[in-house]
Structures are given as C-alpha cells and as structure tokens.
Amino acid sequence: MEWNEKLQMILDYVENHLQRKQEPIDPKEVSQIAGCSFGFFQKVFSYMNDISFSEYIRFRKLTLAGYDLKSTEKKVIDISYQYGYDSPTSFTKAFQQFHGITPKEAREKDVKLRVVPKMQVSIRQQYSWRLEQKPAFRLVGKSIICSAGEQHQKIPEFWSDCQKNGFFSQLVSIDKGAPKGLFGLFHSEKSRVDKLQYSIMVMTDEDVLNVDCEMWIPEALWAVFDCRGPVPEAIQNGWKYLQQEWIMKYPFQHADCPELEWYSDGNSFDEQYLSQIWIPVIDEEK
C-alpha cells in the first residue's frame, strides 16, 4: 500500500473518531495504519501537508464544534468534553483563538465561523512513494569507476556490456529477491573524491564467480519511489525529481547505508516498466 493510501485511511479514521465514535485519536492505531512509529508518521504528515498532525486534528475539532453550536442544542460543557477539552474554560479559549469569537457569541449571533474541511489526499502523483521496513540482505556484483559527470554515459554502457558478456544473465539466475530484480548503487571512491563507483548487483545467498563487489545492506527503513517507463530515462528523471523537490524538503535523517536503484524483472523498454529508487531513512522512535 502506498503512503498516500495510508494517509487517506488515517484521515478517514480521524473523522470516524471525531464525528461518529466521539473517541480520542489513538496514536497506536495511527502507527499501525501508517506502518511506522507515530513520531515518524507525524514528521511525514507535516512534510506533505505543511501542517502538523496535532494541529490538523485540533482544527477539525474546532470546526466540528462550531457546527454543533450552530445546529444543535448541546450545552457548551458537553461539546467541550466531546472534543477532548478538560474544561469549558479551556474549550472557550481555544474556540475563540480559532474562530475569533466565544462559543456563546457563535450561538447567539448570525456570524460565519471558520471552517477547516476534512483533508483529501490525491492518490495519483507523478512519483508515488511509501515506507518499507526491510531485513538485512546480501548483494554481489560488479563495479566500474567513473568521473563525476560521466555517469549518464558510462552507466548505461556498463549495463549493456554486462548483458553482452553474459554477466547479467548470471546475476539473474541467482536472484533470491522477492520480487526479483537487479540493483544499481553508487559508492564513493575512497582514494579519489572526484570519482564514483557504480555497481550492478543482485540479492543472493549463493557464492558467485567473477564478482568484484560484495556488500551487506543492514536492516533499514526505506522511502521507496516508483519510476515508470523505459530506462535509463525513467530512473534519471526520478533522481531529478528527488533532487529538485523531495530532498529539498527532506524531513528524515539518512540511514548509514547507500541509496539504491532497483530494476524489476521485465522489459526495460516498456512504457510501464517499473524501476525504483530506495532512500534509507531513520525512524527515530524505534
């Protein structure tokens, strides 16, 4: 399930608890729906919506309280407790800060109250993404060294060479991933800061001949971005999107392991071919 689908489920959960069940929002239930800790979910929510989760809930409570005052005969004290306030005094203060008038004035006068509508999430995005917790895994493969700026030419040539000399087929035959697919990843060349090391690798537990690179990827939480279309254009456009938009507002700490590209088992020239970018992130609550 993609992140936006989970977010819509959480927004529906909030409305159900505020309007139907009239119960407090349970952070444990929100965490279970989101698939990550409540603290981490709050970071993602704020990043995506430019408003904190707690503030959104407070605004929705005060919006609904305004509806109740104008359309029912409920007492102010009952409305205050219904929406989780400790006393009518604290409710009145919050209501006045939000609406600009007291609950009594809202009921007695013909005034318009502030409304923050239920948030709706657009499921369709140019790049859908989700959070996935993955166990540790082993990668093996081959690498090349290229200068910064050469990667857009050198890396496609490297993939083509691996297909021609049979190494690509060798990796595919030992693929233990679920689903199957090959990985591409960058490393820093330790001896030369102006050089990049790029590897084509596969997830496996088998011993492989003719490999010059082996790596254990630790258990981690990943932000996984789907890229659709022929490669290398689709994956290059995905990185461009991340660098220009997503990472500019990056709300997470980067985990201590490399970023990965993943290429699915299929026709890489197809318009619906799936490749992915995996960004390792830290869930600080775990």
Rank of each mutant, 00 (worst) to 15 (best):
M9Y: 04
M9F: 05
I10S: 01
L11W: 00
L11Y: 02
D12N: 10
D12K: 03
D12T: 09
V14W: 00
E15L: 04
N16C: 01
Q19H: 06
Q22L: 08
E23G: 00
E23R: 14
P24G: 14
I25N: 05
I25L: 12
K28H: 09
E29T: 14
V30M: 03
V30P: 00
Q32A: 13
A34L: 11
A34D: 06
G35Y: 08
G35R: 10
S37H: 09
F38M: 13
G39Q: 15
F41H: 08
F41C: 11
V44Y: 09
F45I: 13
F45N: 11
S46Y: 12
S46R: 14
S46A: 15
Y47V: 11
Y47D: 13
M48D: 12
N49M: 09
N49V: 05
S52D: 13
S52H: 09
F53H: 04
F53V: 05
E55D: 14
E55W: 08
E55A: 14
Y56G: 11
R58F: 06
R60S: 09
L62Q: 01
T63R: 02
L64P: 00
A65Q: 01
Y67W: 06
Y67S: 06
D68E: 12
D68V: 01
D68M: 09
K70L: 10
S71L: 10
K74I: 00
D78V: 07
S80M: 03
Q82A: 09
Y83R: 05
Y85G: 06
Y85H: 13
D86W: 06
P88D: 08
P88T: 05
T89Y: 10
T89V: 14
T89H: 13
T89I: 13
S90V: 14
A94H: 08
Q96K: 15
Q96E: 15
Q96Y: 10
Q97V: 15
Q97N: 15
H99D: 10
H99K: 10
H99G: 10
H99P: 07
G100I: 08
I101Y: 01
P103H: 02
K104I: 05
K104M: 04
E105A: 14
A106G: 02
E108P: 01
V111P: 04
K112W: 10
R114P: 00
R114G: 01
M119C: 03
S122G: 06
I123D: 03
R124G: 01
Q125S: 12
